[in-house]
Amino acid sequence: MAVCASENGSNGKLEFVLKVPFPTEREAGIALQSLSPDPEPRKGGITKNMDVSGQTLSVRWTADEARILRVSVSSFLDHLSLVMETLDAFGSPVSQ
């Protein structure tokens, strides 16, 4: 899991990138579909984009303030670990 946080000089916004490797492409896809439907509760001040490339789920945040970024990332990590626990507990996905 590679993480980097940086302040983007050009627009003064905070950025945070998270890359999450999964055992299979399908599990990464399931995680994306499970985690993406709910919009950020807060209106404005933060954007979050998710996509999957191969077995890796990538998430990129852009935020005005570190405080807002922390709340969003922290809640995302809680949700991510719940998805991973669910995948572990209920086995490998059915192949389609």
Partner: peptide, 19 residues
Amino acid sequence: GAPLVTVAIVARTLAQLWG
């Protein structure tokens, strides 16, 4: 909100796992 999301995430994951 927070409890609803928690439960929805598990439901979505299982629905996909089980097809």
